[in-house]
Amino acid sequence: MTGIFLRRLGSFVLTLLIASLLIFACMDLLPGNAAAILLGTAARPDTIAALEQQLGLDQPAYIRYLSWVAGAFTGDLGNSASYGVPVAGLIAERLAVTLPLAALALLLAVALGTPMGVWAAARWRKAPDRIASGFSQIGIAIPDFWFGLLLILTFSTGLQWFSAGGFPGWQEPASGLKALVLPAVALALPQAAILTRVTRSAVLDVASEDFIRTAQAKGLTESRILWRHAVRNALVPIITIIGLQFSFLIAGAVLVENVFNLPGIGRLAYQALSQRDLVVIRNVAMFFAGLVIVVNFLVDLSYLWLDPRLRARR
């Protein structure tokens, strides 16, 4: 058990390390010079040199990399060139929008997708299965940002129940939450569709195992077999997808935040690109990649907890 844990921990740290090196190599080494990019083509060489010194670009690459990594631990990620404020604070401020948005979307997706998948599996080949299958095929194909536009058309310009975008802040939690409803629904639709599909096939896979027959032979009620035995044993693939979805929701937020004009981290990444703010792009990219890696690691660990059979393996 400890052996497996240490192995997973080791590969987790290694993956993070390689990802950070990759981002550093792309953002700091390849384009030649961040100072020149910031100042544009018309900049004079001495202005570029002065900014280089100010940004610490005159230091050797390995020193710059190490100070970036050290900064990640102390919360000092450098200053944004376009906003003129510390990047760490900027990311934290934007997360106050993106995290609740992703959490709300995930909640909606799980609340819709899991029961629908179980329902489809329990009524396999009957009408509910057909409905769930159709829903998941179409839900997966619909772009979430387009669904967001349709929601704005229906509920903002049409019915005028919600505003078409923008975020009032968290001073009034109710109006803040209301601003996140439509974007969360837009983000949740494709994820609910994927979750329906995965839940259905996970439950069906378990349903052909011997212990289900045993449970049936014991005379357990159908709903007890379904929930206590089939669904419980189907949890590993379901949890994997839910874990992956959280990171994809945060990334998908780049588009949906732009549709709804929400000041989240996805919109920050997009704005940083249009302002050529490489310091922000580098840190936001590391944030996204780090998030996926951390979530994968946690999902890996949850297997050990959910499925005792895996603890004995390897």
Partner: peptide
Amino acid sequence: RFADVVFAFPAIISAIMIAA
């Protein structure tokens, strides 16, 4: 391990880095 690292970059984030 390489696959894990590349997989950690959502396409939209790679696109923003590449576009930069």
